[in-house]
Write a protein that binds this DNA or RNA. Structure first.
Length: 495
RNA sequence: GCUCGUGUGGUGUAGCCAGGUCCAUCAUUGCGGGUUUUCAUCCCGUCGACCCGGGUUCGAAUCCCGGCACGAGCACCA
């Protein structure tokens, strides 16, 4: 018994509660190759960030490699955007902390795909089909072979060459992988591998490609070939691509290759945004609804970055959701809570007074010196001279109270436009604490924030500073914000 | 319609494969409190869940059967 069923003799130890990502099946350190393959029809969305975060984390866990592959093989429906290539590379670096080990452009690899397509036809495992999409659909539903299926390899090769030489228009013909028309899953029956695109009317945006090719591979074919050629060991993709895996596995079996281990995740929506369709975002920008891809209202990586969200927050966010196949909908508040943790300790405190009202001190108090951050002494101190004896406080505070405590200063009482110091000057009484600003260190500033898909602004006075654009600060009693320029701040989110 | 997949608190998530240690983990949100000269951070407390119905078993969130619900694919998009 000991040799035949040792597990019966030993009480198996209960699995520890897991934290972080689960192990990758069949993976060993140093032998893992992953890929992230977006269509560059626009810069990356927050949804793409999931692919990047999960794949790059596994890359790091297994000391493997991450390939960034541009699947830019559609020039008419979701055509690539030339600027997106470089931007996606930058965003990848920003989010994952380093450059991908390899970068591949599918549009550079056309000859390779052709080679395998030709082999497919030559070996009788594929055929050129001249049925219309609708006609073939009927055959597929009826589990019937279409007439083109019985073409001989030589005949197919003739068609193939005619395809390559521009002898067909889009829709005329398509190369199919010969599977089995009786397959249970209708999606797998003789699936299309390459088609014709009108690259005169819709040239590829890369000038070196342009109208050079008429025949283009479809995702299932291109991706299958490339994954094998690059030695990809693990694919992590959306579960909407499950049938894609099955189609590709049939192709792999024909070529005698081993299909990578594949994991899937479900659909994610963000309450405030819904999905992350790149095409929809692109359309809304082109319509002029948004200024550009990095508009703070957009669910793009550049938009969220622009808002003052850190790469770390985005990473923690996606890591926490993991790779379950459930379809989920998450509120933005979850991302923001990660951002607060990511940012708080290093965010210098800055005073911003909304709707400022001016008051004068009844007496001199000299220069005030106090820390830039209550817990992080490394951020140094700030010093407020008060030669003018004139300060700003928020309108709302002035209206709500007559006695209050000026933060880091003293207890006061206001009357008309004058501030008198109270006996309890050093804080014996419990008074509302408000933030305030001496005129000596003030300057006009606009605080922007996004709400309900609109950008709103609040005018006020900000403490004079020289933090560079992009610095994340905390506006005391208001929230975290990003410095846009000398006189503009952007509030990342409301608390 | 066919095919595939998923169902744990308000929202996510762990546990499920190898049934007990699970009156179910962690986070977030809400509520309450503490620290703090910020309505921030941090800390503490609290509310709150195994889709339904059978079955197997001494014992089921975990295994089996049957429902139901939701999602995706069936594109000459990726």
């Amino acid at each position: 018994m000991e040799s035949e069923a040792p597990h019966l003799l030993e009480a198996r130890e209960k699995q520890e509660r897991r934290s972080g990502l689960p192990d990758l099946p069949n993976a060993t350190k140093g032998n893992v190759v992953l890929r992230f393959a977006p269509n560059p029809n626009g810069p990356l969305s927050v949804g793409h960030a999931r692919g990047l975060v999960i794949n790059s984390t596994y890359r790091d866990m297994y000391e493997g490699e991450l390939i960034l592959r541009f699947d830019d093989t559609d020039t008419s429906i979701k055509p690539p955007l030339l600027e997106a290539y470089a931007q996606i590379e930058q965003e990848t670096h920003w989010l994952t902390g380093k450059a991908p080990e390899r970068v591949i452009l599918a549009s550079d690899r056309m000859e390779v795909y052709y080679e395998y397509a030709e082999q497919l036809l030559h070996e009788g495992f594929g055929y050129v089909c001249s049925c219309s999409a609708e006609t073939f659909k009927e055959y597929r539903i009826e589990k019937q072979s279409c007439p083109c299926r019985s073409r001989l390899p030589d005949e197919n090769l003739d068609y193939w060459h005619k395809m390559l030489n521009g002898g067909f228009q889009p829709g005329d013909v398509v190369v199919r992988v010969k599977t089995d028309m009786a397959l249970k899953n209708p999606a797998l029956r003789d699936w299309p591998a390459l088609r014709i695109q009108d690259t005169e009317a819709h040239p590829h945006p890369r000038p070196e490609i342009g109208s050079k090719y008429k025949v283009w591979p479809l995702l299932d074919f291109q991706s299958a070939i490339e994954d094998h050629l690059q030695g990809v060991t693990h694919i992590i993709r959306g579960k909407d691509l499950m049938d894609s895996t099955r189609k590709q596995t049939i192709l792999y079996e024909h070529f005698g290759w081993t299909y990578p281990e594949t994991l899937y995740w479900g659909r994610v929506k963000i309450h405030e945004w819904g999905g992350f369709s790149t095409s929809a975002i692109r359309a809304s920008i082109e319509e002029g609804r948004y200024s550009s891809w990095d508009d703070v209202r957009l669910p793009t990586i550049s938009g969220i970055k622009n808002r003052g969200i850190t790469a770390e927050a985005l990473r923690l966010f996606w890591l926490e959701l993991g790779i379950t196949q459930k379809d989920i909908s998450v509120p933005l508040a979850t991302l923001f809570s990660h951002n607060t943790k990511s940012v708080d300790f290093s965010a210098p405190r800055l005073t911003f007074v909304r709707s400022p009202i001016q008051f004068s001190f009844s007496e001199d108090i000299g220069t005030l010196e106090f820390p830039r951050h209550p817990n992080n002494k490394q951020l140094g101190t700030r010093s407020w001279p008060m030669d003018k004896k004139c300060i700003y406080i928020e309108k709302e505070d002035a209206e709500k109270n007559s006695k209050m405590r000026l933060k880091e200063c003293a207890d006061i009482e206001i009357s008309n436009t004058t501030i008198h110091f109270l006996e309890s000057r050093h804080g014996d009484e419990k008074l509302p604490i408000i933030h305030w600003l001496p005129e000596d260190v003030s300057q006009n500033c606009t605080l922007q924030y996004s709400k309900d898909d609109e950008i709103h602004t609040i005018d006020g006075m900000v403490e004079r500073h020289n933090f560079s654009a992009g610095t994340i600060v905390q506006l005391e009693r208001i929230g975290y914000a990003k410095v846009v320029d000398e006189s503009t701040l952007f509030l990342s989110y409301e608390d």
